[in-house]
């Protein structure tokens, strides 16, 4: 769409911290004086269901919605939920994919099957070849808490270099938003995410 706007789509499962990540990104963007819009859906969507959030940074952003084929960055917290939103990515857009699986109940009940990793990657490849895959859950636990999953993804987003958000602004936003108790874990997670993606991108 507008070349002066970065469109980010974040897809995951309710409870993974998708909304919080979007808010932190936007706060960081605003603190660096960028125009920004966040689109979120609350209510029913939060109860363990599929959650999608959008963040748009740049002068051209007016509304919160990102159209299919116009996302510069698709941030996937979970494999199937990433593939579900793959049509949002623009050609040659970048996909961050956390490989940690959270099984939908339909799969646990044997009413549906979970697609193998290859099928997921092939599905995303229909839209873009630029896929960066890593297990953000393992990294979050390494940072100190499974709840820091979204902070790994925050670092990963910065690591792509596709947004104007600096690591400093992101970390400041993290500091200003969460309690001191988890600060060191969160910041560690952001840095781990960034490094991971920078290495993958090399």
């Amino acid at each position: 769409m507008k070349s002066n706007t970065v469109n980010i789509v974040i897809s995951g499962v309710g409870g993974q911290g998708v909304l919080t990540l979007a808010e932190i990104l936007a706060k960081a963007a605003l603190s660096d004086s960028h125009n920004v819009r966040v689109g979120e859906i609350h209510g029913m969507a939060q109860r363990g269901g599929h959650v999608v959030c959008t963040v748009r940074i740049g002068a051209g952003a007016r509304g919160p919605i990102v159209d299919p084929g116009t996302a510069d960055l698709l941030v996937g917290f979970e494999p199937v939920e990433t593939l579900r939103e793959a049509h949002m990515i623009r050609e040659d857009g970048c996909v961050l994919l956390s490989s940690h699986i959270q099984y939908p109940v339909a799969v646990s009940m044997g009413k549906a099957s979970y697609p193998p990793n290859k099928e997921i990657i092939d599905g995303i490849r229909k839209f873009t070849n630029h896929i960066l895959e890593f297990d953000a859950m393992v990294m979050a636990k390494e940072a100190g808490s499974s709840r820091a999953l979204n902070m790994i993804m925050l670092g990963a987003i910065i690591g792509t270099g596709l947004t104007p958000i600096t690591e400093k602004a992101a970390i400041d936003a993290v500091r200003n938003t969460f309690s001191k108790k988890f600060e060191s874990i969160n910041i560690k997670a952001v840095k781990m995410g960034r490094k991971k993606v920078e290495n993958l991108n090399r």
Partner: peptide, 11 residues
Amino acid sequence: ISGLPPRPPLL
């Protein structure tokens, strides 16, 4: 891309 397992909101 069809047949993805659904993930509706849950208790």
